[in-house]
């Protein structure tokens, strides 16, 4: 198996899908001539041409709206938002149009589109450019929301998203682009809506995804040295949310910590904890803990920003508290 970065995995998935299916095309700000502001689509403009790699105006509603319309005609657009923070400028199209058109018209339409959006804090970009608002989007039935953590899942889930007949929000994390990992050879997909145990253990179930997964894996290494073996469950998809591996693990450990980069209130941790209380109450041996972002707009100053973001030490502390 080849070892590649998350960035390469996403780029490979896009290229392979575009080579496979002429109906797949990319649109977004600086995706073409520039090569993508995160270099994910570097070389695409030369390989596929301006028809299939379309630079757009800085107009997020136009990008997502046009992707919706094109998808309704049977094309498979991959719309790139330069950052997920700009999704708010296209909020109506993302949450109020794409996920509702099929249902609202009695199943007449299909909207096979992908919105790629990179988010996350930790790069000193200030409060408006550093958010991890994944839970906001996962709130809406009709949208599929995936947020992979590893290169293998990034590639396989993006392929699944592009082949899906439904609108998929594909959330990337900017500080994960350099994370390396093994990727299977050849064409493969990772199904949307399937959680996965990324590291087996027996002490505590730690549930996470995306950037939180990377932090959790680092915490797992540190804890293992102390003889504490946590089981790491990666959600990978936030909607549909697959709780089965989480509950299975919890029935074994009877303890859970949920790690996310977004704010604690009304977040992914809140949802997973509530489901554990609802579906596995008899197995609870300790309070379920959440590790998340402090409830502040992220500051520019590096020290303050890191104080607000969840850290490996926070995960280790939470695990020890529930033991």
């Amino acid at each position: 198996m080849a070892v590649i970065t998350v960035r390469q995995a996403i780029s490979d998935a896009l290229r392979e899908e575009m080579e496979r299916d002429e109906n797949v095309f990319i649109l977004g700000e600086e995706v073409g001539v520039w090569g993508g502001t995160y270099a994910v689509t570097r070389g695409f403009y030369d390989q596929f041409g301006e028809k299939r790699v379309r630079d757009t105006p800085i107009a997020e509603s136009a990008i997502i709206g046009a992707a919706i319309g094109a998808a309704m005609t049977g094309l498979r657009p991959v719309a790139e938002l330069m950052t997920i923070n700009f999704a708010f400028s296209a909020m109506d199209h993302i949450v109020n149009e794409a996920p509702k058109l099929r249902y609202m018209f009695g199943g007449q339409f299909k909207v096979p589109m992908v919105i790629r959006a990179v988010g996350g804090g930790g790069r000193q970009l200030g409060a408006t450019h550093s958010q991890t608002p994944d839970a906001v989007f996962a709130h809406f039935p009709g949208l599929k929301v995936v947020a992979p953590g590893t290169p293998e899942d990034a590639k396989g889930l993006l392929k699944a998203a592009i082949r899906s007949d439904d609108p998929v929000l594909f959330i990337e994390h900017a500080t994960l682009y350099q994370w390396r990992g093994e990727v299977p050879e050849g064409d493969y997909v990772v199904p949307i809506g399937k959680s996965k145990v990324q590291r087996p253990g027996d002490a505590v179930t730690v549930v996470s995804y995306s950037k939180g997964l990377q932090l959790t894996m680092q915490a797992a290494d540190a804890l293992a040295k102390e003889g504490i073996n946590i089981e790491v469950v990666d959600l990978r998809s936030l909607r549909p949310l697959d709780m089965d591996p989480v509950i299975e693990s919890f029935k074994k450990t009877n303890r859970a910590v949920i790690v996310e980069e977004g704010w604690r209130s009304y977040g992914v941790g809140a949802e997973v904890a509530a489901r554990l209380y609802e579906e596995a109450f008899d197995y609870i041996d300790a309070p379920i803990k959440r590790v998340a972002q402090k409830e502040v707009p992220l500051p520019y100053n590096r020290t303050l920003e890191q104080m607000a973001l969840p850290q490996v030490a926070d995960i280790i502390k939470a695990v020890k508290e529930v033991l």
Partner: peptide, 20 residues
């Protein structure tokens, strides 16, 4: 391709239909 209830929101969608 529909009656659309959010004022103006179907214009970018129409652009996408035409793009198709």
């Amino acid at each position: 391709w529909g009656g659309h209830a959010i004022v103006g929101a179907h214009l970018p969608i129409a652009a996408g239909l035409a793009l198709g």
